[in-house]
Amino acid sequence: MDFFTTLQAVVNGVLTGALYALVGMGMALIFGVMRIVNFAHGTFMMLGMYATYVLFVQAHVVPYYSFPLVALGMYGLGYLIYMALLRPIHGQSDFMQILLTLGIGLAITDAIQLVFGADYHQINFPLLEKNLHLGSHITVNAPWVVSFGIALVTGGGLYFFVMHTMSGRAARAIAQNRYAAPLMGIHLHRVQAFWFGLGVSAAAVAGSLLLPVFYLYPGVGDQFTLKAFVIVVLGGMESIVGAAMAGVLLGVVESLTSLYWGNEWALAVDFAIFLLVLSLRPSGIFGRQKA
């Protein structure tokens, strides 16, 4: 295989990785602020895909226009789920949170299956046929470029929001010292609900962007929950920048694995990396090493 084939795979990997990054950033946010490993994360992404699908089929709005609406709706849902379900188990064992988020994921997945059935769906619109050529050897499918751009802006916006606004500061304050945060006047649950909603929303946006280039079925989120978990661990658990980089890295590694070893190996390589990082550098590749 020549250089350009490999380069093409890397480009494809970066484009996919940008969406992984968005999913991972959402999970890292949620974990960082409220120490909850959100095992329903992929489910929320799936829900975002279905919402985008319904808007496309019923109202003929393409995902690239409907995603802000989906993001807003999913933010609201995330906020409500936090207040109604997660808030009551605040401060209880991690095991409770794992069970609860797993349960939320299962319930939503089954509800979707009940409403939409277990069939696979795909959407089609003219942009999907367009390809862009970078030089004479590299070709990229137009929807991937658009989704990459949107993911970049969304991820960048999220980063700016976390680092440079009072709301982001409050979230980081809770992550760094949850005892001191209320002494600043920070309403723990309101801030956590807000950021949980935002994390869910990030996953849903990734879902919107993935819909044009992927199959849709009720269980589609499961693999993304696992991927998000791998990404967050690679990225150092609470670092959203780490998660973004780990997401892109995972995309590239998967793409190269598919090219050289075949598609069926991609997920196996994800977990091989995951196990290696957990055993050799538990703080993640991009995380800050804790003393």
Partner: peptide, 15 residues
């Protein structure tokens, strides 16, 4: 009980 990974200025801002 500071926010250990934030700058002095950000700690103050949270006040």
């Amino acid at each position: 009980q500071l926010f250990p990974h934030m700058s002095v200025e950000e700690n103050l801002a949270l006040g």
